[in-house]
Design a protein around this nucleic acid. Structure first.
Lengths: 337, 337
DNA sequence: CTGAAAGCGCTAACAT
DNA sequence: ATGTTAGCGCTTTCAG
């Protein structure tokens, strides 16, 4: 089997304590450093993480749970977090919640049982009330994309983003604007809030029939778009509030034989993969996924430094979504109803 | 801190061995089972995986490395594998290779150092020659989507799939057919082989200018499609051999102002997310991702049962890609050149 | 700066 | 069927 520090002791005549200190970067006499270093090379030694874990009770792994692994938005986030953590020697365990709050809970519990040192969550919706019990209040947590009270987070300014997306529409003459958002999470509701703000600024009254709350699945977005399309007084534009909403809405339009921007304008959210292969290209607000992923990794890494949970004060990073203009929004003749 | 089996010993008066046996499903007297079970509940005991790992030298985790986490094809595969493994009590550590063979190598090494019990690889290309050294020949490995000599795999019949895709085109009158594939991996080359077979059947000569080998990135596919489009004697149809090739090709067409199927027919590969939001819908060969993911999980689980590597005989599962008809292929007037 | 020794929580002989 | 005991490989007091 693999060499252990005992083998190194044989070879160097030094004690386990000294060798351990060397490995963990303590002060060791230069000549001893040299000896140990050579022995390590000769024996191809490398630390046994399991043994180390047992005594330090740290696994050098962090868990991540996402609503859906299929979305390139989440995929990109995972990619950057994983890469940043790997550099710090941490591995990333991922779990897919299939857009389901119950599975999300199970995943968190599963990962916590696996003794992850930290948890990165992209929540599907509401805060799990007993989240701290679930992880015995010991595991540092950070949420991404969605904010949970009292827990560190990395998000964008969602009200502003919703405002900007909707303003982009009103500035081009749209006054009947639909919105498809996720009702069960604050992120969706904030984007709705931004939407309302933009409407108010243009003196447009809210209309219940145009506000479609969904559970976050593609199917629900598809349904929502269909309902919007079949309205007697159809909106001239729709704001879809996340990646899966984009997909559901576009599919619904295709299937119903509607084309954007001619029949209906559309502005989307999250990432650029789908928007850029669509023809016409979709106008979207892009979240800065790389920065957000890196920030999340840095924060969780920092939290994990502090063994005492009391030292981990919640940090909140707020980024800004960037508008990427496509060809999916039509300028409407400025006639007023 | 958390309760240990020693606490259970106090509470039950039984020995550590008995308790351990109970936990691991050995034979214990009913009355003792009862006692232990109650103590476990009262103390909220659950096994300490780190301690167990140290003695069993198993971590109950498997590593997975994928070329790109951003692709829904890989995302779906990961999802199903993760779900299957989780059910068996195994966690999944994922690493993204960014389509780079060197990072792939590093990832495998990283995960092996993390003592994963098994490895699921979706290779970016050629077999890493010293793969067994890399994981000290101890860690069971399985590849997905791509086959590596001597290693268990889950793939589709790629020659057949390439043949079917191309035949679909020839049957609709196409005779100048481009192909964009990944040159550095056998999967791409096999699809090319199927393509050639289909051409031969229709007495169509191969033409070098129509066969675009890429390194598997979206950018390369984009380039390849552009070259195809700028050919004096443009093909009437193109077969894009995987998810990222689909994307690159469609983007190139959009940017160059070409439309399918009018200007050029196109048939793609892998998953259904992109194809189904495209308008017209893309015709593709879909890989049975759920079955493949489940199979991969089952096989690696099985391999991990056998502590002796000699007992792990390589298993190869071959699935079949399914044609999903969209509207991206035009029937061509059966005039012959 | 170095060494001796204890112990993290569990499993697995081996004995009873 | 149950108990005793010896580690797994490492970190970490505590002395020296």
């Amino acid at each position: 089997m693999s060499a252990t520090i005992k083998d190194i002791r044989e070879k160097t005549g030094l004690s386990l304590a000294t060798i351990s200190k060397y490995i963990n970067g303590g002060n060791v006499l230069p000549e001893n450093r040299e000896k140990i270093s050579r022995a390590i090379k000769e024996l191809h030694y490398h630390v046994n993480d399991m043994a180390r874990s047992l005594v330090t009770s740290q696994t050098r792994s962090v868990g991540m749970v996402v609503p859906s692994m299929v979305s390139p938005f989440h995929g990109t986030l995972i990619r950057h977090i994983e890469s940043e953590l790997k550099q710090a020697g941490y591995s990333l365990m991922v779990c897919d919640s299939m857009n389901d709050a119950e599975q999300e809970r199970d995943n968190i519990e599963f990962l916590s049982r696996k003794n992850v040192d930290g948890l990165v969550l992209i929540p599907t919706g509401k805060k799990i009330p007993d989240i701290f019990d679930l992880v015995s209040g010991e595991v540092p947590i950070i949420t991404l994309d969605v904010k949970w009270a009292g827990i560190s987070s990395v998000i964008i300014d969602n009200i502003r983003a919703g405002y900007e997306a909707t303003s982009y529409l009103t500035e081009r003459g749209h006054r009947r604007i639909g919105i498809i958002y996720i009702g069960k999470q604050c992120t969706g509701r904030q984007r709705l809030k931004g939407y309302c703000k933009a409407l108010a600024k243009s003196n447009i009254a809210r209309e219940e029939a145009l506000e479609m709350a969904t559970d976050g699945t593609v199917d629900a977005a598809y349904e929502a778009m269909n309902r919007l399309l079949s309205l007697a007084d159809r909106p001239t534009a729709v704001f879809t509030c996340n990646h899966d909403m984009n997909i559901g809405a576009v599919m619904a339009m295709n299937d119903a034989g509607y084309r954007y921007p001619t029949d209906l304008s559309i502005i989307g959210f999250d990432d650029l993969v789908i928007p850029s292969i669509l023809n016409p290209r979709l106008t979207v607000l892009e979240q800065p996924m790389e920065e957000m992923g890196n920030a999340a990794a840095r924060i969780i890494l920092e939290h994990m430094q502090h063994t005492d949970p009391a030292d981990r004060k919640a940090e909140h990073h707020v980024y800004r979504a960037l508008l990427h203009e496509g060809k999916s929004v039509e300028q409407i003749s400025p006639s007023r109803t």
